[in-house]
Design a protein around this nucleic acid. Structure first.
Length: 541
RNA sequence: GUGCCCGUAGCUCAUCUGGAUAGAGCAUCAGCCUUCUAAGCUGAGGGUAACAGGUUCGAGUCCUGUCGGGCACGCCA
């Protein structure tokens, strides 16, 4: 808001100076440099063949000739930065904005008009959700929330396979368990699922009177039970309901797979080799060609994958974000190549991917290997039980998706009171407590005379609050949900610092109202930010 | 071996399309509760941004190489 106004003024000043360029405004790292800075003079210096400071001086003179009501001072520093200092009223104007906009403060138009699908979790119903799914669920849910603030329609989708080899393997494992055959015995297949949950499924199935010989019944029971279990964990994790659960099997039954194969054949990018049908994905940047139909018959998984992504396009999603583990990054070039081969107008970079690395889990000083088949891994449900939903979500989103992350259970347990999430939540609860004691209505706070604010720490806090809208916009643009937890920590720190620097409940009614208004605005921003993360904003702790 | 990702303080990580003196938390050390929630605040120490080159006014950020780690390289999904 403020930033946009200043950008427009700056761009206008550039034109008046006879220059052309896209000025960007950023916060100087050093607060004493000013409130905003632009490096436009440095960028224009080279094409103009001039000294950067000379260009900066030219720009400054036109800006000085057309003063902006929010700006108190313009200065040139270093190699040619133009620093802008705002007047006091401008710095605290954000407080009134927040109190007026409330839950919608932070909303913007960075992705206005887009129809976006985010596909995430997409776990096959062959076992409970593990920590990798937890990271994906936290990232996906948060990203959806962020995108939704930026003017686009967001569709949450969960894709899974209810009929493939892995499901048959699951079915067989449950059948064997029902018959009393255990993992490790001579009759147990190498690739059987070994987890204890298989035995539980077998017992539950038997107790309903089902026969282990009835593979269809076992399959339906197991898939159903595991899907229900997954949804239970996701709900406990605070993940909003998916708009659609898409079944891979439906791509076969509704003929989309055959249709896709026919279209690919018609495209001229397929060929037969050694009894198999191949797609020449190397025509589109893949590093080797891929088999579509095996010599023994049946399609490889990537064919329904392409067919699936065609439906995303046909369903009108102009933008698609797939959240996947980095272990699947090899599929990206394949899927994109398949879509390009079809030549139906799908953009080259479609779909987008947000890749996350696996979550390592340390427990008792040892790494717990994640393997569904070995049956040894930490589930999402266990994580929540141990550390709490809020802490798990905050932790998993608070780092870049592609950085490796070791979740040390013992550390999280022993230091559960020192988790960063509590720091942010505490700031919110602290404010709520002060506001309760303050006794002013929301209307009174919104009407507070903000010119009563002057403390340096109050300025720093207000400046931080004003960053929220552009932060959310950047996070949406860059698919970077990890920026939100970091920002919230900074807001909380700025508040705690101010809290210790100046009292709120003072006698002077004007000072009191203004300070409480700043506190209320801070609480609102914390609440909005925590809401994006799906983390609660407690009023008491 | 080939491709992609990563390497920043003792540990976990930020650094927003290349910008000013690389920042937080945890841990360590020294202080602050008769006063609105001490789950807090203030201060200190801690760095050749893996290494070596290159591009330019300027590189943690871009390029090349080396070393180290992760992932993927199947007519599995």
């Amino acid at each position: 808001m403020q930033k946009e106004q200043l950008s427009a003024w700056l761009a206008d000043g550039l034109v008046k100076a006879g220059l052309s360029g896209q000025p960007t405004l950023e916060r100087p790292k050093q607060a004493d440099h000013g409130d905003w800075a632009t490096n436009i003079a440095l960028q224009l210096a080279k094409p103009l063949g001039k000294n950067p400071r000379e260009v900066a001086t030219l720009i400054k003179s036109t800006l000085d000739a057309n003063p902006h009501p929010l700006v108190s001072e313009i200065s040139i520093a270093g190699p040619g930065f133009i620093n802008i200092r705002l007047n006091g009223a401008a710095k605290f104007a954000v407080v009134a904005d927040v109190l007026k906009l409330r839950d919608s403060f932070g909303n913007g138009t960075a992705r206005a008009g887009e129809n976006v699908m985010v596909e995430f979790v997409s776990a096959n119903p062959t076992g409970p959700l593990h920590t990798g799914h937890a990271r994906q669920a936290a990232l996906g849910d948060t990203l959806c929330n962020i995108l939704q603030t930026q003017g686009c329609k967001v569709h949450r989708e969960f894709y899974y396979n209810d009929a493939g080899n892995q499901i048959e393997n699951l079915t067989r494992s449950v059948q064997l368990r029902a018959r009393g055959i255990e993992p490790g015995s001579a009759d147990w297949p190498d690739d059987g699922y070994r987890g204890d949950y298989i035995l539980e499924l077998a017992q539950k199935f038997s107790s309903t009177g089902g026969s282990a010989d009835d593979a269809n019944a076992v399959r339906a029971f197991a898939v159903n039970a595991l899907r229900a279990e997954q949804d239970k964990d996701l709900t406990a994790f605070g993940v909003k309901k998916f708009d659609c659960y898409y079944l891979e099997s439906s791509l076969y039954t509704d003929g989309r797979v055959d249709k896709t194969v026919a279209a690919l054949n018609a495209s001229g990018h397929t060929f037969e080799h050694e009894g198999a049908l191949w797609l020449k994905t190397t025509d589109f940047g893949d590093d080797k060609d891929r088999v579509m139909r095996k010599g023994a018959g049946g399609y490889t998984y990537f064919v329904p994958d392409v067919a699936y992504h065609v439906t995303k396009w046909e369903r009108g999603f102009t933008s698609v974000v797939n959240i996947q583990g980095t272990d699947h990054h090899g599929t990206i070039s394949r899927v994109r190549a398949g879509l390009q081969a079809l030549d139906v107008g799908i953009p080259k970079g479609y779909p987008d991917y947000l890749l996350h690395s696996m979550v390592r889990v340390m427990k008792g000083g040892e790494e717990v290997k994640i393997s569904k088949r070995a049956g040894s891994y930490i589930t999402l449900g266990e994580l929540i039980e141990w550390v709490g939903k809020d802490a798990v979500r905050f932790f998993l989103v608070a780092r870049k998706a592609d950085s490796e992350f070791t979740f040390d259970i013992d550390l999280a347990l022993s230091q559960s009171e020192e988790n960063p999430v509590y720091y942010v939540q505490y700031a919110h609860a602290r404010i709520c407590s002060v506001l309760r004691d303050g006794g002013l209505t929301a209307d009174a706070l919104a009407a507070a005379d903000l010119s009563a604010l002057s403390h340096e720490k109050a300025e720093a806090l207000a400046t931080k609050l004003a960053d929220f809208p552009s932060l959310v916009a950047t996070a949406a643009r860059d698919l970077a949900p990890h920026m939100v937890p970091y920002y919230l920590r900074e807001v909380a720190a700025a508040f705690h610092t101010y809290y210790n620097a100046e009292r709120f409940l003072v006698d002077d009614p004007r000072d009191r109202a203004a300070r409480l208004a700043l506190a209320a605005a801070t609480a609102q921003v914390l609440k909005n930010g925590l809401g994006l993360l799906g983390v609660s904003a407690p009023e008491r702790m």
